[in-house]
Simulated assay, not measured.
Amino acid sequence: MLAPSPRVQVVRQDSPNGGWMLALGQPDPRLSGYVRDYCGYFEKTPHPLRRRELSAPQVVLIIDFGPPLHLLDSRDGSLVARHTAGFVAGLHDTYSLTETPGTMSGLQVNFTPLGGRLFFGLPMDELAHRVVGLEDVMGSDGPLLREQLLGLPGWEARFDLLDRLIATRIQAARSVPEWVDWAVRRLVETGGRVEAGTLAEELGYSHKHVIARFREHVGVPPKLFSRICRFDGVIRQLKAGARPDWGSLALSLGYYDQAHFIREFRQFTGSSPGEFLRQRMADPSGMSGV
């Protein structure tokens, strides 16, 4: 049996015009290599609200309690999709754009790339750079999971259910090669500061073989995964409240120079670092990168 669900941390902010709530939870420790965290959420605003959802070294499962999020084209803001039960987002090389109709409620599970591979039972390159409806990934099990979660009395019970379901599906899945697991952890732990060629040499495989297996089990080649890990390091520092000297931050995280850092930052966020930071300060809920 899995251990009891960890304590749930609830953060709220209310105002005359609405407010938001986050229920933050960690998975059972035995799932730590597969699930990064859980987040239940509710938000109400007086008008529709758009956000940029940023790349991170994770596969995201959104279970939508309603109304459903609108997924928009980041180039022109046009509606791309609206998935009633929820959706799954694989690794991306840029940001995604979402819009709420003024109210949203749901639950987010952030899988590690290999956790997503095992839980969904799909080659991750089928999900990379895509947002796919929950029913298209999980079949009838997706809407059923949504109804089960909605029927539970609180966030702790919901996270307990997710612990059990994820453990069951992962135990039944085909394992991922140990060297892929090792390579992914190495890139995450170093913040992406290992060159793809060096990684292949350390593993004793050809560069081509490493790229192919990464595409299958992670979704993207190791070079792009390294870039995502490095960018995630930037966002983690900003979420921790840092008001950094951008040049020093760039060098500390492995960028060649500040110009390299700014190019990468624009690729992943669509804006300059300064503009991004101003927008983030205007969104204190922390429910997105903006």
Rank of each mutant, 00 (worst) to 15 (best):
M1L: 15
L2V: 07
L2C: 13
R7P: 02
R7G: 14
R12W: 11
P16D: 10
N17E: 12
W20A: 12
L22I: 11
A23K: 03
D28A: 15
D28Y: 00
R30F: 01
G33A: 15
Y34C: 10
C39Q: 15
K44L: 10
H47R: 14
L49Y: 05
L49V: 11
L49R: 10
P57F: 01
V60G: 05
L61W: 01
I63S: 06
L69G: 04
D73W: 02
S74M: 12
V88I: 09
G90W: 01
G90C: 06
D93T: 09
S96T: 13
T103E: 13
F111H: 03
P113A: 07
L118Q: 04
F119P: 02
G121C: 09
A128E: 01
H129T: 09
V131W: 03
V132P: 05
L134G: 01
E135P: 06
V137D: 01
M138S: 04
D141Q: 09
R146H: 01
R146C: 02
E147H: 01
L150Q: 00
P153C: 02
L161K: 00
D163P: 03
R164E: 03
R169E: 01
V176L: 08
W179L: 15
V180N: 02
V180G: 07
G192D: 12
G192C: 15
G192R: 03
R193T: 05
E195P: 05
E195N: 05
E202K: 09
S206A: 11
H207W: 03
V210S: 13
I211E: 14
H217S: 10
P221G: 15
F225W: 12
R227F: 01
V234T: 09
I235F: 08
A242C: 08
R243K: 13
R243V: 14
P244A: 11
D245P: 03
L249S: 04
L251F: 04
L253D: 02
Q258D: 08
H260A: 14
F261V: 11
F265P: 00
T269P: 07
S271F: 02
F276S: 07
F276A: 10
Q279D: 06
A282S: 15
A282G: 14
P284K: 12
S288N: 13
V290W: 06
